[in-house]
Design a protein around this nucleic acid. Sequence first.
RNA 1: CGGGGCGUGGCGCAGUCUGGUAGCGCACCUGCUUUGGGAGCAGGGGGUCGGAGGUUCAAAUCCUCUCGCCCCGACCA
Length: 516
Amino acid sequence: MKRALDTARSDNFSEWYQEVVRKSDMAETSAVRGCMVIKPWGYGIWELIQAELDRRFKETGHENCYFPLFIPLDFIAKEAEHVEGFAKEMAVVTHHRLKTIDGELVPDPDAELTEPLIVRPTSETIIADSFRNWIGSYRDLPVLVNQWANVVRWEMRTRLFLRTAEFLWQEGHTAHVDRDDAFEETLRMLEVYRDFAESVMAMPVIAGEKTENERFPGADNTFSIEAMMQDGKALQAGTSHYLGTHFSEAQGIKYQSAEGDEKFAHTTSWGVSTRLVGGLVMTHGDDDGLRVPPALAPQQIVILPRLKGDDSDAPILEYCDALRKRLIASRALGAPIRAQVDKKDKNASAKRWDWVRRGAPLLVEIGPREVEANAVSVLRRDALYEGEKVKPGNTAADEFANTAASRLEDIQSAMHGQAKSFMENRIESGIAEFGALGEFFGEASEDEDGPSEGPLRWARVPWCKPAGAALEAVEAKLDPLKLTIRNAPLDQNGVSGACIFTGEEAVEEILIARAY
RNA sequence: CGGGGCGUGGCGCAGUCUGGUAGCGCACCUGCUUUGGGAGCAGGGGGUCGGAGGUUCAAAUCCUCUCGCCCCGACCA
């Protein structure tokens, strides 16, 4: 059977991923090492992600603002763990002028900055500096801000969307009177991410707490949402941190309480990035390309006129335009329907496959027959095939216009359902001892609805939550198996039995998986 | 940063061993034909072979250096 991509997921998952990103017209590599060009279809998806998250952030009381791209080097040095965590991947600005020397344009040796600036890898320190000025009294708290920005982390190996040297994200930063208030905020935003992933991205995730070794540099607690990709690997899709008073103490974010004494504010930070787009690809893509859940599709319905290049075209185009007008007048998933007529002068079936690769949820094909019968031919991207054939369904135009919204909503929930059962069927919770864990991840597993390569599953196992050296020992056991502890899910189903690492009594369950 | 691989029109590749001055497929442009499922035929445009230096009468091809990309590790959202 001919598919729209050259590489199948089961052939080579990472090659497949690259091909989807490129052939769906989302992004491409750029002339700059490790940095990508996000093209309109990919950026359109990101804009919808932004719009929906932004709405949710504001609904939970946050306001947007903007802090500088550059951070003075000594700011980073103020929080010890923070330096440790980011030092190895900083882009540093050292000069402010160029000069031609021996015919070559180079940084002017006489224009060296007295203090180097770093390009933000994250903004805790520069924002803390402002918080110090903004906060004087308990009446100023909480401070709840968010910024949409680009950040730079000089990664060794990059992959489009999943790990690029520069990426787009949002970072929320808040300050609170005490631990309870800050902790509540941390969990609130984690829940915003979880719900967004599930209901908007149709990407099932598991929310939980990271182990102490996986914490954000400078955090007391780090929580994540973890999504299962179709190769069975875990993708950390969002994080929310309770920072305690680390940054407040490092940078003097103090306030006077009602009782008159001076206290450090408790801060949080939380973020998601363009990595979500990579997660979308690996959650919903298939061997014909991307499938975009309707809530995030820049065009939810693409109308493809079947043109001949003669007089017969005019009524077809007119019919398509009228249909589009009707569609965009109605709403689906809480917003006006986004529909487009692709009038490009190109073979109709070539255009069809272009849109299949991009993953537009509904494709409507209109030729003389449809115009004649006042009908439409419709393809659902999430269910392209009937057996081995692509068979558009024929429907009256009125009926289609009236049901377009519910069709889109169907697709949204079908995609979520499919991804959810994929994940749920692959989380094993019956492993009671470490040896069985090795066997579980060692064996090659195969499935009808997924790629046959690699560890297709996760394990949910009881442990005693060791710390320090004991935790290091656990990680050392997992390392040869290339396994990592993803998180301790927030919804614990009642733990019983012994820790699979130490045999001591277990206190909670954790997720174990290979990860991106 | 360690190991491996690769850089030739927009994309994918052949040519490199055995130096003689660039070719194929897709894409693109023009024309004609075709049109219910990713069109056919004909004609055409576009590259000096990642970059720099060297050897040579002559370099995509040999040598040196360098940059970048991909895969596996380490690191990471």
